[in-house]
Design a protein around this nucleic acid. Structure first.
Lengths: 359, 359
DNA sequence: CTGTTAGCGCATTCAA
DNA sequence: TTGAATGCGCTAACAG
């Protein structure tokens, strides 16, 4: 069955294609009677305008690209849903791309998205400077940075108050009496990761406690590498690709390193939810009880956190709204409004049971 | 900066656009020297072919649509990742759509995807018969059903052995000595839900235990409705839209109903991961310990299940592979290979600690 | 071995 | 109040 085109409709309604186009887009007046005929023809033929032909003609595709690291990470899942809901509200839709924090994949996707003439881009960049991204910005493609900044690109940013998050988490632990607080953090290229650690340091500084660099360890957020072996066919996770980045040890390994310190920390601040899983597994394996033996606070909440053993105390971030806000900002950019100021959404300490008071 | 087109390249290289097109697509022989000139021109101008123009000309967009119920559901998250990985491998990309099990949203998305000339469709249908879907199939758009069937559409299906899953779960509970086994199940329109219950019934039948319909309760899988109030700005979940479907009580409510039965079940089989959360919250609120007071087995595993309190015994399904397999099948369909037979992937019982032996 | 040209399905300018 | 004609960027006959 060949696709029915605007010509078929025009013919059937006995008008020109121009008129059909105009009744569809309401872009100039059409006599009621004529319009009626066109509308009927459209329905009878079940006509659906071709969005790509329209795109060619108008240079606008109603499509935006969403580049994130991994949809499988609950943080990005919620963000993506927020994005999709907001864009859909405006009649736009989303092409989604997982980089796994790999700059090469990022580059490849940027190429693809550009080829497909996206009207705008939402990106949580890997943090490695990208010529292609710069070029897209120069080509006046509206871009909104999602959650993270990246060197060499000055675009509106929607983020969460990561510094405050690190600060709140640390301060809470300090109030509980902890003095040796370990940090399990992720890749250095990711801006949120460094900022969260800055919040941690500020809290220590205010409390007059020197920062001990031994207590800050860095892991690859793909926590499961080498630790939770994919159960072949039954794995729910994508196979792990060993890029350069992934030479960094996993959260599981690195936490063990922290626990082997002569003077072991009494509490740990984990800077994202994926590493929290690795950390929890490491504790479990060593037979360490949380919070009896060690306290743990994590960045980013999710639906399951309260069902964990123990229920997790976390810094919660408005993930869904982060996506929604960024998408809204992009829509405004696309509609030609001036570039909005960067937006920072608040975070919140959610106290459950994974941290305890010490004397 | 205006987009550079094939004309610009042709001009710069001193050849015709046809030649440029042919070196790009390697679709006819071009003298080395000429090709070289074209390649250089492309690089100098940083030319990127327009995929939508090409789409118009060739009637193929390298784009496929993915319709699922909610990317926020970990099951679909993993499926989506599998789909994306596989499609990307073939140079295709994905437009993703969340229906929230709402047939109207499904219809709207189908319209959108058709307008955008997708080359193929991957859909976990809501289960309500859809004219538009039928029409798309008639228009020879390749379609692969993901995880579920739908009335009035005969398309290749990639699914999981849901019947066996229900059977294994029930059989395991029977082996532990349970005789009154409750079922917390989801919407009737969703084919997997009914099949899982059939597996349950078969196991009972084999054990000579009559099916007690009182023990089978139905909930809306959007478990959180009325139960876990969205924490305003800090919610990680999309706002709940009250469609007709959602007049069904939540898992939380329905489980309570089950627990109020004169002769309370000693074990519960929950037929998907979302309802499991509702169920766990309900148990927690009533102060019932699992598995001491009641055993629970759930359909679908995820990374967190082993960290729950208690670690969840589940029927695990190969979610990532489900998506990957379906996408692979769609690719074959698009490439013109004959419609493959329906594929059923195996499920697996993963025993952890949420079920106990009773006398 | 390469160029010319006619569409693909639509929006839009210019006429009428 | 409406139509005819042109072009968006590309591919694919057809021609040479």
């Amino acid at each position: 069955m060949a696709r029915v085109s605007i010509k078929d409709v025009a013919q059937r309604a006995g008008v020109s294609t121009a008129t059909v186009s105009h009744v569809i887009n309401q872009t100039r007046f059409v006599r009621d009677q004529t319009r009626q005929r066109v509308v009927e023809a459209i329905e009878e033929l079940n006509y659906q305008p071709s969005a790509i032909a329209r795109g060619l003609a108008t240079n606008a595709t109603q499509t935006i690209g969403l580049i994130i690291s991994d949809i499988t990470n609950p943080f990005f899942t919620a963000v993506a849903r927020g994005v999709e809901d907001e864009l859909n509200r405006h009649g736009y839709h989303t092409i989604f791309c997982n980089t796994d924090e790999d700059p090469n994949r990022e580059d490849e996707y940027l190429r693809l998205l550009f080829a497909h003439q996206i009207d705008g881009l939402l990106i949580a960049p890997t943090g490695v400077q990208s010529d292609r991204l710069t070029r897209m910005a120069e080509a006046d493609i509206p871009i909104v940075l999602l959650d993270r900044t990246t060197p060499g690109l000055d675009a509106p940013l929607v983020q969460v108050d990561n510094e405050a998050g690190g600060y709140y988490a640390t301060k809470y632990l300090l109030e509980l009496g902890h003095r040796r607080i370990g940090v399990l953090r992720g890749l250095e290229t990711i801006s949120t990761q460094v900022v969260r650690v800055e919040g941690y340091k500020r809290a220590l500084r205010e409390a007059g406690i020197p920062v001990d660099d031994q207590l800050i360890v860095r892991a690859d957020p793909q926590y499961h590498v080498n630790q939770v072996p994919p159960r072949a066919l039954h794995s729910n996770r994508p196979p792990v690709k060993l890029t350069n980045l992934q030479m960094t040890p996993s959260a599981f390994e690195v936490l063990n390193q922290l626990l082997d310190l002569p003077e072991r920390p009494t509490a740990i601040f984990v800077t994202n939810n994926q590493m929290t899983l690795g950390a929890l597994h490491a504790l479990k394996e060593r037979g360490l009880k949380c919070p009896q033996d060690i306290s743990l606070i994590s960045f980013d909440d999710h639906d399951w956190a309260s069902l964990f053993s123990p229920p997790l105390t976390v810094i919660s971030q408005p993930t869904y709204h982060l996506g929604k806000t960024a998408a809204g900002m992009l829509m405004r950019l696309i509609k030609g409004e001036p570039a909005p100021a960067p937006t920072t959404l608040p975070v919140e300490l959610v106290i459950r049971e994974s941290c305890r008071k010490i004397s």
